[in-house]
C-alpha cells in the first residue's frame, strides 16, 4: 500500500529565526517528490521537521490522514516516516548488520535483513564490519537500508548524492527506483537538480523558507527553475 503526505501552512523556527514560512505541498502516493532549492532554503529543515527532530512549528502535516505530532521522532517512525540523513549519520559502534537491525522494531513490512541485503548485495560481505571501514557510497547504502528497515511508508532522503562518485549515484538512484516499486513513497533532496528532476514525478522548490515552485517534474524548464531557485525573472 502506498501512502500520501500532506503539508499545509507549515512554519518552523530555530529560536528567533523563522526557517520555514507557510509551506504547503502534497506528496502523491507511490511517487518520488524532489525538494530543491539553494543552501539555506529550508529543505533539510522540512525533512527534519517531518521526522520529529524540530519541535517548534505550526501548521498541519498528515500522513494518510493521520496528523503528525511535533517534535516526536518515535511517533514519526511509528507513523511510517524514515530519514536518510545528510552525512549518513550511521551508528559508529554498531556493525553494519546491527545498524540494519536497529530499525526493525518500528513497523512490520516487507523489508528485513534478507530483502535489504538483496537491495544492496555489496553489504552482504560487509555486514560484520563497522561504518568507518566502508566507502562513502557503501555508507550511503547502509543509511538507505537502515531507514528502510523500519518499513516506512515514506522514505525521506536528504542530500542523497552528496559526495558520491557518479557511478555510485546511479546505483543509489536505481535502488530508490526499486524501493518505490515496492510501494514506498520517496521524498528526496539533492543538489544535483537535473538528476533529481529526472527521477522525480513532482518537484517543489524552496527559497528562504517559502515555496516558490510546485508542480510536475516534467514541466520544469531552466527558466522556471531560475525564477524559483534564485527569484530572478528571465
Amino acid at each position: 500500500m502506498t501512502s500520501s503526505l500532506k503539508i499545509e501552512g507549515v512554519s518552523a523556527w530555530y529560536g528567533e529565526f523563522r526557517a520555514l514560512s507557510d509551506v504547503s505541498l502534497a506528496v502523491e502516493p507511490g511517487q518520488t517528490h524532489a525538494l530543491i532549492g539553494a543552501n539555506g532554503a529550508g529543505k533539510s529543515t522540512l525533512m527534519k521537521l517531518l521526522c520529529g527532530l524540530i519541535p517548534h512549528w505550526t501548521g498541519r502535516i498528515e500522513l494518510d490522514g493521520k496528523p503528525l505530532p511535533p517534535g516526536n521522532p518515535e511517533a514519526a517512525a511509528a507513523l511510517g516516516l524514515a530519514l536518510v540523513p545528510e552525512g549518513r549519520l550511521l551508528f559508529d559502534s554498531l556493525t553494519i548488520e546491527e545498524n540494519l537491525l536497529i530499525g526493525q522494531s518500528a513497523r512490520p513490512g516487507p523489508w528485513n535483513m534478507t530483502t535489504l541485503l538483496a537491495l544492496f548485495p555489496i553489504l552482504r560481505e560487509k555486514r560484520r564490519q563497522y561504518p568507518a571501514q566502508l566507502s562513502g557510497g557503501q555508507q550511503q547504502m547502509v543509511a538507505i537500508a537502515r531507514a528502510l528497515a523500519s518499513n516506512p511508508a515514506i522514505l525521506l532522503c536528504d542530500e542523497i548524492s552528496l559526495g558520491l562518485a557518479p557511478a555510485v549515484v546511479r546505483e543509489v538512484y536505481a535502488a530508490l527506483d526499486r524501493v518505490r516499486a515496492e510501494g514506498v513513497t520517496v521524498v528526496l533532496v539533492d543538489q544535483d537538480i537535473e538528476r533529481a528532476c529526472r527521477d522525480a514525478a513532482a518537484v517543489t522548490c524552496l527559497m528562504k523558507g517559502r515555496v516558490t515552485h510546485r508542480g510536475p517534474a516534467a514541466g520544469v524548464t531552466p527558466t522556471t527553475l531560475r525564477e524559483a531557485y534564485f527569484g530572478v525573472r528571465a
Binding site: E74, A77, A82, F91, D92, S93, L94
Partner: peptide
Amino acid sequence: RAVSDRPEIAALMGVR
C-alpha cells in the same frame, strides 16, 4: 549503543 552514538537518529529508527 545506538542511543549512545546518535540519540536523535536512534529515535528516528523507533528506539524508545
